[in-house]
Amino acid sequence: MAEQVALSRTQVCGILREELFQGDAFHQSDTHIFIIMGASGDLAKKKIYPTIWWLFRDGLLPENTFIVGYARSRLTVADIRKQSEPFFKATPEEKLKLEDFFARNSYVAGQYDDAASYQRLNSHMNALHLGSQANRLFYLALPPTVYEAVTKNIHESCMSQIGWNRIIVEKPFGRDLQSSDRLSNHISSLFREDQIYRIDHYLGKEMVQNLMVLRFANRIFGPIWNRDNIACVILTFKEPFGTEGRGGYFDEFGIIRDVMQNHLLQMLCLVAMEKPASTNSDDVRDEKVKVLKCISEVQANNVVLGQYVGNPDGEGEATKGYLDDPTVPRGSTTATFAAVVLYVENERWDGVPFILRCGKALNERKAEVRLQFHDVAGDIFHQQCKRNELVIRVQPNEAVYTKMMTKKPGMFFNPEESELDLTYGNRYKNVKLPDAYERLILDVFCGSQMHFVRSDELREAWRIFTPLLHQIELEKPKPIPYIYGSRGPTEADELMKRVGFQYEGTYKWVNP
């Protein structure tokens, strides 16, 4: 592979701008107003304001973009700056750019259920340069409990009458099928589907988006991507930290609602779906819905739930269990780990287990898709061969690698495990991989909904998990304890083995 010439960040961002501006969906010269509902909250200060700053800094926003914060707290732009700027990672050389960014910011205080507050917000936006005809993007960085009041008031008082209007809704989209349907029906009564952007930030990850290209742009994968060759698929999300004093919020939802029903299920769809007619948003989402419709409700015998306990040999936070978090209700049975087996009941995947695993306070930070292939028929190497695996590593250190057998150097035919490896950090030294939120917010500006969740996708996802969630809430089974920093409950490994996964433990990928 030829040595790549190092590029400056300015040059890299210039390439990104060229890609972005050559499309006809990006209205570079139009006025846009980006409204952050819930501007005083954690999500706004840690993710949304920093993301908008990065896009502005790199010249990736339309030229005439204004940012308006809205929340109940009586704040000023200076207050917003004070709480969000520490997350910007701005350099001293960017000081003038930073001043320009905050000059485009404003803030309006108001209630979430008060019509007069929204009329005041609308008047404020109209007073901005060309504000009355601007395109408006409303980001709901809010708890779902206020979605209905907020969307109703936005629709009645704050819509642009000339430009387009788009609304970005953060997960969780309800707690179960019934609450999700209620919320979807409410929002759909106010906005068209092409105006609604239900954001799952995992769909903005580079390697998640790469799944489609790997599958449908490489001839070698087509013939082997089926039940005849693939023994099982494992989708993993692991965090090495616990709730760390923020367990009160987590306890309301648990690990299945927080990660599995959305992030992991979306990745499953991209692995299992048929080739779409095109890369058009609805063509892709149509195929994802077909996959979900082929999955039956989760069966309790295919589920393992766990909850982390303190590690007596650990240090600091590792010595504390979930129930030691003062914000967690006493005696909570909320799971911090889950392993679930699903089956896609169609011709391509009949009988292939899709194993979804996620948890907190585990032994490493990792998100990946792992396809394990069947054993080689007619073994001539005296059971020395391990199964081939194709691994798409989402985070950290984005990579695609194939675990395969090669001859060990020497005189004899002794096979050993090795890999074919594409590590993004080595291959793409001159490429700026956008943060997931950067990519998705740019998608909203461009009107691309491919990486957002459609209402029928959402409904099918909740259909699969709601009976299990209701059973857990009714019966309150005690989750299996696992030690902070471990791989999780051993019962999860036993479940995976029972459905056909072979864990060798003899080879570990190392970032080159």
Rank of each mutant, 00 (worst) to 15 (best):
S188K: 13
R215N: 00
Y70N: 06
V68H: 00
A116G: 13
Y107L: 08
D228M: 11
G204P: 01
F87V: 06
L98T: 05
T91Q: 15
L235S: 03
P172F: 04
P223H: 10
D30S: 13
S180Q: 06
P172S: 00
L140T: 07
D113M: 11
S184M: 11
M207R: 08
E94I: 00
I187S: 05
R227Y: 09
A90Q: 08
Y249Q: 04
L137I: 12
A90K: 08
F21D: 12
I224M: 13
L20P: 15
E156I: 13
F26Y: 15
R227N: 10
T91L: 13
G41H: 06
T76N: 13
L203C: 04
I67S: 01
H124K: 12
S29N: 15
V208C: 15
A149E: 14
S157T: 10
D228I: 07
Y112E: 00
L7M: 12
D176N: 11
M37Y: 10
G110M: 02
I224Q: 11
I154M: 10
A127D: 14
W54F: 06
G248Q: 06
N64K: 14
A134M: 10
L16P: 07
K89F: 13
F21M: 15
D114M: 11
T65H: 04
E19R: 11
H186L: 07
I162C: 11
I67A: 03
T76V: 10
L177K: 10
V213D: 02
K97H: 07
I35T: 11
A149L: 14
L7P: 10
Q22T: 13
G163C: 09
V169D: 01
Y202E: 04
F173T: 00
E170G: 04
T65Q: 03
D58M: 14
I67Y: 08
L214V: 14
Y112N: 02
E156F: 10
D42F: 01
S160A: 13
I256H: 03
V68Q: 05
I167G: 01
F87W: 13
A115N: 13
T65L: 10
L43M: 00
R246T: 00
A217M: 06
S180T: 04
S189G: 15
K205Y: 06
T76D: 14
E244L: 14
E252T: 14
G38Q: 00
F191I: 06
D113H: 14
I80E: 00
R72C: 01
F88I: 14
R17M: 12
N153A: 12
A134Y: 08
A25V: 12
G247L: 06
Q22D: 11
E94Q: 12
C232S: 15
T145H: 06
A78F: 13
R17E: 10
D100F: 12
R120V: 14
P240Y: 10
Q11S: 13
A39N: 02
Y70Q: 07
Q83A: 14
D228R: 08
E99K: 11
L183P: 04
Y70L: 11
L235I: 14
N105E: 01
Q83I: 10
Y202Q: 01
I199G: 08
S123D: 15
S188Q: 09
R81S: 06
E19C: 15
G38C: 03
R74V: 14
M37E: 03
I199R: 04
D58K: 09
S123K: 15
D181Q: 11
L60N: 07
H186N: 11
L75H: 11
L130E: 15
H32C: 08
R246P: 02
Q195M: 11
P92E: 12
L235C: 12
P50M: 04
P143S: 07
M125P: 02
F88V: 06
M37T: 07
Y197K: 00
R219S: 09
K95G: 13
L121Y: 01
F102G: 05
D114L: 10
E93A: 14
K171E: 03
R198C: 02
F88S: 06
W54D: 07
I196L: 11
D100I: 10
V150E: 01
E156N: 13
D251H: 04
R246V: 03
R81I: 10
T65D: 05
F102N: 04
Y197H: 05
Y249E: 03
I33P: 01
Q133D: 13
G131C: 10
C158A: 10
E85I: 11
I48E: 01
T91P: 10
A44T: 05
P86V: 13
F191N: 01
D113P: 08
S132A: 11
D194N: 14
E85V: 13
P62R: 06
S123C: 09
A6G: 09
Q119S: 14
G14M: 11
N105I: 09
A44F: 00
V108K: 06
T31Q: 09
Y202V: 01
R192N: 15
R57W: 02
L55H: 08
E193R: 00
S106A: 11
I256R: 01
I154G: 01
K46H: 05
F191M: 10
V108Q: 10
P143C: 06
K89R: 15
N64D: 12
A71W: 05
D42P: 04
D113F: 10
T151Q: 06
F101I: 04
L55Y: 05
H129K: 15
F216Q: 05
S184V: 14
E93G: 11
I48V: 09
D100M: 12
A44R: 03
L7H: 15
N210L: 04
I256V: 13
A127F: 12
N229F: 05
N185K: 14
R81N: 07
Y49H: 00
E244P: 08
C232E: 07
